[in-house]
C-alpha cells in the first residue's frame, strides 16, 4: 500500500501530459493526524502533493457528479463500485474517466485511534503495522486491529473497474460475515430495536455530514430540505432525526457499497451504517445483488422480473 504512491504519481503525470484528462482527483497530506484532504491536480506539479496511505478513507466518487471534464481519479475498491453506480445512474460517463485503481488494504479508523490514545500527534501507516505518536508516547499496532469496521469486513477491496492498477490485487478474504451487526439487531425484540435506534441517534446534530459524504446522495434537493410539502420537521425532535436517517438509508437501497463514508464523516461518531447494511443484506438475500459490481446489469430497484420475491404481498 505504501509503494502505491509512486505509481499513482507516475500515472497521474502521464495522463495529464498525454492530455487524456483535464484533472486528476486524489489526496494530499492533511493538517491533522489521520486526515488526508481530497484535492485536484491539474498540472504535473500539483501531482507532487498527492499522498496515499491508510488515511484516504473519503470516497472520491463523491467528487465526480455532474462534472463535464475528463477526469483521472484515484479509486479504492469501494470507490470504483460507487463509480459503477454513478455510470449506471448516468451521473458520469465511463469515457470521461481514467480510473487509477488502488487495491486496498483498508483504512484506519481515526475515531478508534483517538478514543484509545490521548493527544495523538501523528499516525504513520507502515503497511501491516501502524505507528501512533503522541506528545509523550509511541506505539506500534497491527493495522488489522485499527481498521474502519466496514474495511474489516470488506469483500471487494480490489477495484472492479479501472484503466490501470497501481499494484497487484490484494487477497480477498472469504471467511467474513459482513452482516454480523445486522443479524444482532434482527434478533432483537421490537421494543429493543426501537430503543437501540433511539440510543444510536441521540447525539445526532443533523449536520448532514453523512448524507453529504455519501456519493449516492446527490439529489438536487434532499427530501429533508423540501418545503412544499415538508416531509420532515427541521428541529431536533427525535422522530424527525430518525425519519431523516431511516429515509436516507432507503434511498440507498440496492446502491450502497458500504464504503463507510457516512460513518467516517460523522462528527459525533454515529454508526448509521446499521441502517444501510440492513438494506444491503436484504438486497443480497432477496435479489442476490451486490451494488456496483458491473455496469451490465440494472439494479434490482429499477427493474422488474417475473420471479421477484413477493411473499410480503398478501
Amino acid at each position: 500500500m505504501i509503494g502505491y504512491i509512486d505509481k499513482i504519481k507516475q500515472i497521474s503525470k502521464q495522463i495529464l501530459e498525454d492530455c487524456k484528462v483535464d484533472m486528476v482527483i486524489g489526496f494530499r497530506r492533511g493538517t491533522v493526524p489521520m486526515m488526508n484532504e481530497p484535492c485536484v491536480a491539474k498540472t504535473e506539479d500539483d501531482v507532487d502533493q498527492f499522498v496515499w496511505d491508510g488515511h484516504c478513507g473519503i470516497n472520491l466518487a463523491n467528487y465526480l457528479m455532474g462534472r463535464k471534464e475528463k477526469i483521472g481519479i484515484v479509486a479504492k475498491g469501494c470507490d470504483t463500485r460507487n463509480i459503477v453506480t454513478h455510470i449506471i445512474e448516468n451521473k458520469i460517463d465511463r469515457d470521461q474517466l481514467y480510473i487509477i485503481g488502488v487495491p486496498c488494504k483498508g483504512m484506519i479508523d481515526r475515531r478508534q485511534v483517538n478514543n484509545r490514545f490521548e493527544g495523538v500527534r501523528e499516525v504513520i501507516d507502515q503497511g501491516d503495522t501502524v505507528k501512533i505518536i503522541g506528545a509523550d508516547f509511541e506505539e506500534k499496532l497491527d493495522k488489522t486491529d485499527l481498521l474502519q469496521s466496514n474495511c474489516a469486513t470488506c469483500t471487494h477491496p480490489n477495484p472492479v473497474i479501472h484503466d490501470e492498477l497501481v499494484g497487484d490485487p490484494v487477497e480477498v478474504p472469504t471467511d467474513i460475515d459482513q452482516w454480523a451487526d445486522v443479524r444482532k439487531i434482527e434478533a432483537m425484540s421490537t421494543e429493543d430495536k426501537w430503543g437501540y435506534f433511539d440510543d444510536l441517534l441521540k447525539e445526532c446534530i443533523r449536520c448532514y455530514a453523512c448524507r453529504n459524504a455519501c456519493p449516492l446522495c446527490y439529489c438536487p434537493t434532499c427530501f429533508v430540505d423540501e418545503s412544499t410539502p415538508q416531509w420532515v420537521g427541521k428541529s431536533q425532535d427525535p422522530i424527525d432525526v430518525r425519519t431523516f436517517h431511516f429515509l436516507r438509508a432507503f434511498h440507498c437501497a440496492g446502491r450502497c457499497t458500504d464504503c463507510g463514508a457516512c460513518e467516517r464523516a460523522c462528527p459525533v461518531g454515529i454508526n448509521m451504517r446499521v441502517f444501510t447494511q440492513k438494506l444491503e443484506k436484504d438486497c443480497y438475500d432477496l435479489y442476490g445483488w451486490e451494488a456496483g459490481l458491473t455496469t451490465d446489469v440494472r439494479p434490482p430497484l429499477d427493474t422488474y422480473r417475473a420471479d421477484d420475491p413477493e411473499e410480503f404481498i398478501k
Binding site: E191, K193, W194, Y196, F197, R242, F246, I313, K314
Partner: peptide, 26 residues
Amino acid sequence: AHMGVESERIHFSWVSSAESTKFVRV
C-alpha cells in the same frame, strides 16, 4: 420492522378493482 415498528402494523396487499370481497377481507 427493523427499526422497531411492530411488523403487525405493516401490510401489503394487491387488490384488483374487481375483487371487492378480498378488499373487505384485507
